[in-house]
Write a protein that binds this DNA or RNA. Structure first.
Lengths: 269, 269
DNA sequence: CGCGAGCTTGATGCCGATCAATGCATGTGG
DNA sequence: CCACATGCATTGATCGGCATCAAGCTCGCG
């Protein structure tokens, strides 16, 4: 029907037709199983979303050598945990992750959700140990980027250096956005912001902007947004009553994106 | 009395005696007025807290050239604002800053407070524009670090590259900590965590771990902690009643650090 | 089929927001 | 030097949003 046979279950149930997706974003590249053919940055369908954005071909080929190793993490598995020695950062190839930190007394907080093309493990650079857990929310595969090698290459290629710094900085900016959300938004606004952010990132990956399948539980959403799972659930229900969404378990269809957007900015009432 | 004549009013009213402070942390270096003698990284009293941590002498001297410019910002003034073109990052030499982001609808959120030796402006790397405002909370002076030059030098000296990446990563880790605070702590825990963090950083700069002068208003503390100013005030009062603190306006004396620490981790009750 | 993990929905209570008044320090101009 | 204004902090009274506690419900899966 949509011309994408063998598409593994990924973020959304309704990917756009091939023509509307980024060049080379063919289905095989999104499969959690090891790809039959060798995958290199230079031929990766994610290269315009991932670390290599905008790098010239010469540098891309050098990247191919650096990123030799891949790692598979099955649903529920840990890519790394807080306290692990830091050696590499990781780029999500397929699948979906959450990262979470926890305080001594056992509370924990989801600090982010990562999808294809996004980097994991930047926290480890600070003191050679990871400071959060990275958990796969579905069967996933990551590219392993040895940090020492990345440092070397960055010295050689200033495009790469610049790109990597941009990614770190972007993470800081994103975190500030989350702080704003946690510090000053009400439950409805938080959930609206969350959904809009997710769909935007999915859209950049060629998926529908209006239809998605959540890979995380209500509790995980709640943890990320500083809410209890019951509040998340109730807010979903309210959105549905108001005709903003259609919610069936983790299947979400956005009926009124503009309404969600207004809800976020309308603020005070 | 404490051998520190001419010390400008800074974070605390009771700096430790000279011997207990970091080498070279002489008073003149903390004055908001332009220093009479040339100040270079290699002779800066903050070099063990700032960008140059751990760099060998050769690299330090090259830094001296890079960081040629200084800038003074008086109390209430802006170092940069959201939307400004990004060109440099800044190291606080003297004084105290806050950074804050704001949403379209006017709410804003303090994302951090920066004191001597800490960097400002890392958010700008992501897309060549600053995404937050940096406001001086007292008369301050910063070292201007042109980002292009920093990139160049980082390619040349891998200690510098590594150090800079560590600082970015540390900011990410810090932000995750704030997310944990905002997402899962109650008012008392938030304020306790805030005070402990502040005193720890002050202590690293040679100030008393138990006595400090807040440079920010209750409202700014509240914004940072996701609370209203009244709640901050009430919580201060409660801490005082419980004998944890002595509070007189912005003068704070910590009477029971262990109590504060327990309060944070004791968590659920 | 029955179990269990995850989701929904209701009833109740509490923490922190809000509204409002007062207090306190600093500064300014008469 | 006092009168007054201004900005910030404290304190009280009340309110509301979200947490908490407690059932059911749904769906996938052995």
């Amino acid at each position: 029907m949509h011309g994408l046979p063998h598409l593994e279950p990924s973020m959304t149930a309704t990917p756009l037709p091939e023509a509307a997706r980024p060049a080379n974003a063919h289905a095989a590249g999104n499969s959690p199983r090891p790809s039959p053919f060798k995958v290199a940055c230079s031929s990766c369908n994610l290269r315009e979303l991932c670390l290599p954005v905008g790098l010239p071909d010469a540098e891309l080929e050098r990247l191919d050598n650096m990123v030799a190793l891949r790692r598979t993490v099955s649903r529920g598995g840990l890519l790394f945990r807080a306290g692990d020695a830091f050696q590499s950062i990781y780029a999500v190839r397929t699948g979906f992750f959450k990262t979470c930190v926890s305080s001594e007394d056992g509370r924990d907080q989801v600090t982010g959700f990562q999808m294809a093309g996004e980097l994991l493990g930047l926290d480890g650079i600070s003191n050679d140990r990871h400071s959060c857990n990275a958990v796969a929310l579905e069967d996933s595969q990551v590219c392993v980027i040895p940090y020492e090698r990345l440092e070397e290459l960055s010295r050689e290629f200033n495009d790469l250096q610049r790109q990597f710094n941009k990614i770190m900085s972007r993470e800081i900016v994103r975190d500030h956005g989350v702080m704003l959300l946690l510090g000053s938004m009400r439950a409805e606004e938080r959930l609206a912001a969350f959904l809009l952010n997710l769909t935007q990132r999915l859209q950049a990956r060629g998926f529908s902007p209006s239809s998605l399948v959540l890979r995380m539980t209500r509790e995980e959403i709640g943890s990320y947004l500083g809410l209890k799972l019951e509040t998340v659930s109730r807010t979903f229900s309210r959105f549905q009553e108001e005709g903003l969404l259609e919610v069936r378990q983790r299947q979400i269809r956005i009926l009124d994106q503009e309404g969600l957007r207004k809800l976020m900015n309308g603020a005070k009432c």
